[in-house]
Nucleic acid binder design. Structure first.
Lengths: 102, 102
DNA sequence: ACAATATATGACTAAACAATCATATAGTCA
DNA sequence: TGACTATATGATTGTTTAGTCATATATTGT
């Protein structure tokens, strides 16, 4: 897999609403699945799958402690990517609102 | 659509190998479809669809000039997102290479 | 060994996606 | 007007994705 495809995989792992919520949750440090899934209001299995997706893409760390498995952000760049996407989204949202108002 | 979903849509528009190639091409300024599709080695129709995807997500500008339609990057933040994803990808690539070498 | 808890995963469904081929639309120029 | 060029889009196909339910795996404490 070349860098281009790899970059696409990393971005794809971030670009999903549920996963963005998880990333926001992990902003303040590691959390276990049992904390994450009630916080985001999704099923445990669904949450686990999203965590696996991000883990495999390389943007999360995993740490086992007894029964619990803690996940954390592996690259601070991910938060910066999310921030920049938010800037663009905010800018475009005003533009689209204007379109709808026409 | 809330900011979270919007951010996801913006990132999704970026996170695909063919579209990343197009974004790289547009780094140096606007290009028409007729320049883009031979450069990336995809069909005209496929290239046009990818451009529509990015246009609708709000990350591209469109300018018509006669028969040709020129597309350009609308937000410099997109290039920064691509750069950061590349950093993560490069970092993870060495990690995965190490895994395979085991 | 057993019950309880935390997490992962198989099987499935509906929806979204990328790519292709053929064709439609629209602008240019002779 | 008619030929030509550039772009977009309908229809289709095979693949991927998100989500759900049920169940398997693994760790802990009694």
């Amino acid at each position: 897999m070349n860098t281009l495809e790899y970059s696409a995989e990393v971005l794809k792992a971030i670009s999903q609403p549920t996963r963005l919520r998880i990333i926001e949750l992990l902003r303040d440090g590691e959390h276990c699945v049992c904390e994450i899934f009630p916080a985001i209001g999704h099923e445990q299995s669904n949450t686990s799958r999203h965590l696996q997706t991000m883990l495999k893409s390389g943007i999360l760390n995993q740490r086992k402690d007894g029964l619990k498995i803690y996940y954390s952000l592996r690259h601070p760049e991910v938060l910066e990517i999310v921030r920049l996407a938010g800037l663009i989204a905010a800018h475009e949202a005003t533009g689209r609102a204007a379109l709808f108002a026409k």
